[in-house]
Amino acid sequence: MMRLIDLARGGDRAAEDELFQFLHVRFLCIAKRRIGEKDAEDLAQDACLTVLQKYKSLPDNEHLEAWAYNILRNKIGNYLQGRLLKPHSGVTGKLSGYPLEPQAKQSDPMLRSVLTGCLRKLYRVYPRYARAINLSHQGYGTVEICRRMAITPNHLYVMLNRCRKMLRECIESGKLSNE
């Protein structure tokens, strides 16, 4: 990112386009996780434009990522604040328990079936993974999950990443690595 900004500052048009693309995919990814699919695209684009308008006025490149990220965060914050103030317009008319939680999109049945099969296998090998995921479904965060499972956060992260790796391998190959 630094290199692209340096080039763009020097007047390289292609580098500026590339910088826009670079930021856009990342901002979109983050925004989707924060606010859901619906308005993520607009918000990411808006944040990218702000960065492109202002990056030349920055004195140095040292904290550029943090600065760019803060622009996105502010946009997300404003968006969520706006959504809180708006009356809910759900199809069913019911209020969600978590109004800021992105709406779950319809999942691919094929992928869900593969994932279910792999999870069954994985849960047999790592029942603690099932426990952690179950607690996350109940809305607990890292601290509470670690307290309930009597493990440290680091231990939890390592276990989650290990299981994620096995899950990915299983989805790709159809079997767990230790089968």
Partner: peptide
């Protein structure tokens, strides 16, 4: 892994399966 993690996080069938397997 975004699609998989979305399903893992929010899909009701996965939630039921996990609850069964966790206890």
């Amino acid at each position: 892994f975004s699609e998989e993690s979305d399903i893992l996080h929010a899909d009701n069938k996965i939630k039921n399966l996990t609850a069964k397997e966790a206890f």
